[in-house]
Design a protein around this nucleic acid. Sequence first.
DNA 1: TCGCAATTTTACCATTTGGTAAAAGCACGA
DNA 2: TCGTGCTTTTACCAAATGGTAAAATTGCGA
Lengths: 211, 211
Amino acid sequence: MPDTAPQDQDDATPRTSRIQQRNRARILEAALDVFARHGYRGATLDQIAAQAGLSKPNILYYFDGKEAIHVSLLNHLMDTWLAPMREIDPAGDPLDEILRYVHRKLEMSREFPRESRLFANEILQGAPRMRPHLETGLKPLVDRTAAMIEGWMAAGLLARTDPRHLIFSIWATTQHYADFEAQVSVLMDGEDGFEGAARYLDRLYRRMLMP
Amino acid sequence: MPDTAPQDQDDATPRTSRIQQRNRARILEAALDVFARHGYRGATLDQIAAQAGLSKPNILYYFDGKEAIHVSLLNHLMDTWLAPMREIDPAGDPLDEILRYVHRKLEMSREFPRESRLFANEILQGAPRMRPHLETGLKPLVDRTAAMIEGWMAAGLLARTDPRHLIFSIWATTQHYADFEAQVSVLMDGEDGFEGAARYLDRLYRRMLMP
DNA sequence: TCGCAATTTTACCATTTGGTAAAAGCACGA
DNA sequence: TCGTGCTTTTACCAAATGGTAAAATTGCGA
């Protein structure tokens, strides 16, 4: 009975059987759901196991532990989460590029509310398992983007303002609809907020940034 | 040994000794800290007890249980949290009133980040212990405020837009600095974000709302 | 089809955690 | 000063939870 469990190396070992891939995916999918709904400490391995349709020890066969699952999720999340910002085209029309970014961010909130909440939970708790990623992944990208926006403003293509706070406000306003959905739905009488949000945010940032 | 513990009646019984008031306050203060930092399930009575300088059973002498402490905090929070919106003056200059509201909200984020995070945590988890309060406390106030803003817009005193989404965006952008402080501080190199935020948000909402 | 390794289950454990019972201590008015 | 009732401590407990050991089972290449 060799003790050679695969463990979470995030695709480091290419030796992944089909059954392994399937179960890993199941576990991560279930864990995303549970972590997003209850936060890290509020989530239990039993919940994740039940939702994944596996036994708890079986889950621990695929991952080193609860924390490893969480970290794996956060790592994977980072990429997709930052994609829209990476796709801002320095050669495009500045206002169009930023408005497109806003819309893509809002779209992600609608399509991936669990991912948004997972992220929000982690940051709210002080980013205990993510600070390194913020420094090495997020920070450089934001610095670069802020510099780009600054350039656009200096060239008179956008109204002058602090690009960093602009980015914060875009994040805040778009993610709000996923993270605070419970509140939004009460105040909108259960109506979907995203329709109106798209129109509102387009107008907000257009007026803000038109030179 | 009569079993007549005071219990949490939120000032229902005026029979509160000085020592009772002091210890209740200590507990709530400690609980605010712990709940804000770790979320509801992440917080433990032992942590709260340690930080309050009391023993765990002693804490349960003053409150019916963990949940009662949390509910007590949320109830109390609602009032202070909504105060700025209540203070919007229907007779004042619309743009001034809204900008003042933005600044007061931002100020509250700076002064009461723990309260902001406590609230954010609760909403993120789907507002399990707060939905009634949202319906009965928040909803009517927001409806009223939205109608007021609508009136201002109809009168041509503000640029036309959806007042509800306007309110959401004000909440999102101001609370962001408290709730996502871990992220903001990384991206601002540890600099305080509130200075720049005040300028940025003033400009944002001024440009948005100027008729 | 055989045998070995990958996978899954069963049976546990130690710790943590919310909570309780009841004794001990303390404050303060009569 | 005494005693009554408010307050605090001590000693627990049951359930939940993350995790492990090892046996049982399954998949699969030779």
